[in-house]
Amino acid sequence: MAEVLVYVDHVDGAVRKPTLELLTLARRIGEPVAVALGAGADATAAVLAEHGAVKVLTADAPEFTEYLVVPKVDALQAAYEAVSPAAVLVPSSAEGKEIAARLAVRIGSGIITDAVDLEAGDEGPVATQSAFAASFTTKSRVSKGTPVITVKPNSAPVEAAPAAGAVEALAVTFGALATGTKVTGRTPRESTGRPELTEAAIVVSGGRGVNGAENFGIIEALADSLGAAVGASRAAVDAGWYPHTNQVGQTGKSVSPQLYIASGISGAIQHRAGMQTSKTIVAINKDAEAPIFDLVDYGVVGDLFAVVPQLTDEIKARKG
């Protein structure tokens, strides 16, 4: 059976959920061979094996952290040459897309980004994508070379599928471009203890209607009652009320949770672009004409300062 390369997104050996989803998709088109790079790469093997990786290729070198993107492209290319896979799957993070794109141009292959589903097809894997702020769904294929496809979080279920997951060291030689962009400083993000925005099953977002950084506590309290991640519109981010890393939309994160709750958000096209594929959408807005209500499964026309705390209390009461 053809092998499929899966690029592993992990933090010091802890594999992030979107990679496990990729393994589910990879198994639809072949046998997953994982590529894990950097500190803790070997430690990823156990969980990758549980989810279907037949092999885990690992490499560690200071270049992966000291220089931007290109060393990882060199490594993924080495894996590609060692395996000759039927396809290469990479998580659709900002960095993942850059790695995939550079690999694609090097190996003379077409690239599909931000797939939300993947199936086997007669002429190679068929990817489903959303276009124009999710108002269209397209199906595409790579028609030249080995398909390189980046896949969004929450595009497939995580499935247990035990496989060998044998660790093999990957030999990597870095090219001249690898050390082109030096990382001279790194400030890690502080963890909030809440789920990662793009991976969360529930996202609770606030917009300009929240009217101040101090009021975001109301949104956070609702999120915590549901075990949800917190999102924000660009208006709230630009006003300095919430960090940019939490922005949902075209120039922020794109989310596709089971449930999205928007409070004090009008629903501009650029915001929709990042949340329209959510399964269930709920909004609280005092303006009955707000375009967000065109998307909702359930909407409350009212003041979020009254509705949101009441909702939070009711959820807590029901959960006991």
Binding site: G110, I111, S140, R141, I281, L295, V300, A306, Q310, E314
Partner: peptide, 29 residues
Amino acid sequence: WTAVDSAAQRPARTAGTIVKDEGEGGKQL
């Protein structure tokens, strides 16, 4: 190097329920 085989307009979301908050909006939600 890529081919788009189909493009379909996403079906409009079926109209949801919209209620006006008369004091019980949070509970209804």
